[in-house]
Nucleic acid binder design. Structure first.
Lengths: 338, 338
DNA sequence: CTCTCATATTGCAACGTGGCATGCCACGTT
DNA sequence: AACGTGGCATGCCACGTTGCAATATGAGAG
């Protein structure tokens, strides 16, 4: 165990309180006292005790990141930005995986580690907006991804409908007419897939192109294997397609892998596009066309939003819906002219 | 704020201590008392206060995972396993990124968040074995990756020399004779790259094949971009090669991307192999041959090792070197016969 | 009816910190 | 010389929990 305030105080010949004042930067300390105390602090390598500070002050300096899976590249990259950004707020990030399980999401929502966090940043999958809203007064919460709980909970996201529509338009403009979608998740409350599907259909419909059940493939989860399985189903179904819009890059990479293994040329025979702009997509063969959310901005906005809410617990600001920018990344898998 | 022990005690008409006994499962509590207290606990939704427990008991229930970059797929997957496994020990994982920076590694090694963690699991890059060993009596530490600090610090790893040699032998057996290596990091204290290089050279030398500076490419860091840059250098150098062994899958994916963009056929013209078995490699085009460390075992071993050390702080066990299994994953990028 | 013993419950103290209120001293003013 | 002022330092307490030791209760034996 390291030294505590009392030991520093005894050694410096001052009271515990004075040492505390020095440590916390309280101005009314005589320069020479401050210096003497500081010397003893350095000598004994005193480090403030986080537990005591937390108990006394009610702040732990911890923020929980609650997400389905940290191993997923999108969340991994986001977590990286969040961990970096958290430093500016003197926060440390704590990772909690839900696996997309409703019970686990509920449990973590109610209280991560017995309320020991200052706030939560959560990417909900299985929980409905209603359940997200109906929660006891525990730590402040900021959601990642658009939520229907608009006006009730803070959330930070990109405009999924617009982004999906833009990407679909890009496929149409490049000459594709039979465009399938992979990644619908009707079993999840998380509305992200539904929003991307809406943008996809809007764009097709605006261009007078067909869409319908045979071109829309559900997935259980968002791993590459799910994308691969969906692509297999699509190809086996005999449906005529010249482009596939996958709702995440991981799905797209799995789908593209199967297409290539089956002898299809990407993009000549089949254009493939994804969503998320994960690093893998950039170096895939061919490189993956995708929607690139500004992840750094997403992370920064989530932290700033949470910080504001934590700072004003007595006088809570109204719930905010923060939309961060995205851009289309056109790469070889679905080029401008294909 | 939630209810505390005192409030539960008053309401249940017992002492604070008895409520504590109920909560902690102390056996000497009369069944009906236990039941009555439990009812009040449920009523008030009492949740133990983590800060107070931490202050009183000295255990925070937190374990810091200190690594270069959480967004890197290998570390992301490992973190996923660690977070899952941590639950069995009632631990929560806390993520700290170093970016491979020596100063940052040193700082985190000395004390993450003012000693507020029960232990550290760290993947050092820039710190020398000496510096790792020479540290004050802070939280127990388990290192990921082989370390020269053998006998002084716990570490959990695979046998890098053997794995690299096995992979190189596989390339040789598949008929390759000019085998390059991408991924040496002479500027880092972390000996992993050096170990893989040693295995690579051993296998080449045993087969009577050439190796040397022109076939060994340094990288600054381990991103796909570094692999891509190294491959560009290699191809531009005019060196004759028919296989490339990259010391991580990320490097391999970057390298393979460049090779394919340059019109090389993988594996016909150039076999590419990686190391780590990240999910991207499995679905790359072509799928990446690699060394697959047993990441779940790695995580489990690290946690078990740390748990033992935390449990016996007064009577510390001798430092352990734990080697977990790996296997060769032969895929299309470097098949058996190519 | 008392003594013993096991079971059940309790009060006290302490973990290290920071808010609050107060004490002390020196210095300048009346 | 007495008084007020402001800078500086301090003691006490509470945050919520658990280890320790002590006490209350009831059953069974002598």
């Amino acid at each position: 165990m390291g030294a505590n305030l009392r030991q520093v105080a005894e050694r410096a010949g001052v009271s515990v309180r004075t040492v505390s004042n020095v440590v916390s930067g309280f101005p009314l300390v005589a320069p020479q006292t401050r210096e003497r105390v500081q010397r003893v602090i350095d000598e004994l390598q005193y480090k403030p005790n986080a537990a005591a500070r937390h108990l006394r002050g009610g702040r732990s300096g911890l923020v929980a990141l609650v997400l389905p899976e940290i191993a997923s590249p999108y969340f991994g990259e986001l977590a990286g930005h969040l961990a970096d950004g958290a430093e500016a707020y003197a926060w440390t990030l704590l990772v909690q995986q839900t696996g997309g399980d409703a019970a686990r999401e509920r449990e973590l929502l109610d209280g991560v580690r017995g309320q020991a966090v200052d706030g939560l940043i959560m990417s909900p999958w299985a929980l409905s907006p209603g359940e997200l809203t109906r929660r006891p007064d525990s730590a402040p919460l900021v959601l990642l991804g658009e939520q229907d709980a608009d006006g009730l909970l803070d959330h930070v996201a990109i405009d999924n409908v617009a982004a999906a529509a833009a990407l679909t338009r890009h496929l149409i403009e490049s000459g594709r007419t039979r465009i399938a979608a992979i990644g619908l998740q009707p079993h999840l409350e998380n509305g992200t897939a539904a929003r991307r599907a809406r943008g996809y259909r809007q764009a097709l419909s605006a261009a007078g192109l067909p869409y319908g059940k045979e071109l829309e493939l559900d997935v259980e989860s968002l791993h590459r294997a799910d994308g691969a399985a969906a692509m297999t189903r699509l190809l086996d179904s005999g449906a005529e397609v010249d482009a596939v819009f996958c709702f995440t890059d991981q799905l797209a990479l799995g789908a593209m892998h199967v297409a290539i293994e089956r002898g299809l040329r990407v993009p000549a025979d089949l254009a493939v596009a994804g969503f998320d702009d994960i690093e893998d997509g950039r170096y895939a063969n061919p490189a993956l066309t995708t929607v690139a959310p500004d992840k750094a901005a997403l992370a920064e906005a989530a932290l700033a939003c949470l910080a504001e809410r934590v700072g004003r617990r007595d006088d809570p600001p109204p719930a905010r819906r923060i939309i961060v920018p995205h851009r289309l990344e056109v790469r070889r898998s679905a080029p401008v002219r294909g």
